[in-house]
Amino acid sequence: MITVFGILLMAMIAISAVKAITTTKLIDSVLFFSFVGIGATILFALMKAPDVALTEAAVGTGLVTLVFLSTLRRTSEQEHGDEQ
């Protein structure tokens, strides 16, 4: 049961990672990257590492997404992410 759940989660993370790298809009890219972080958090919790899961949830997902969004706001005056 946990194996099936974990494999479904890994598929979700893989799709999110591919979308985060290949999508054209930068804001979508940042949100897909935060999906990768959330999935990794659940995987860490499944792997009996609650300390790492807490750190990934607070630092690796929340803070990094905030910093990416702040950078996007600072840099989005003239140019939008049309480069892939």
Binding site: P50, D51, A53, L54, T55, A58, V59, G62, L63, L66
Partner: peptide, 25 residues
Amino acid sequence: YITIHGHLTPGGGFQGGVMAAGMAL
């Protein structure tokens, strides 16, 4: 709570510090 109970429960200074800083953010 997470900072003070770092040696008893999962968590600790890094996680609790970031959560308390979330207040300021």
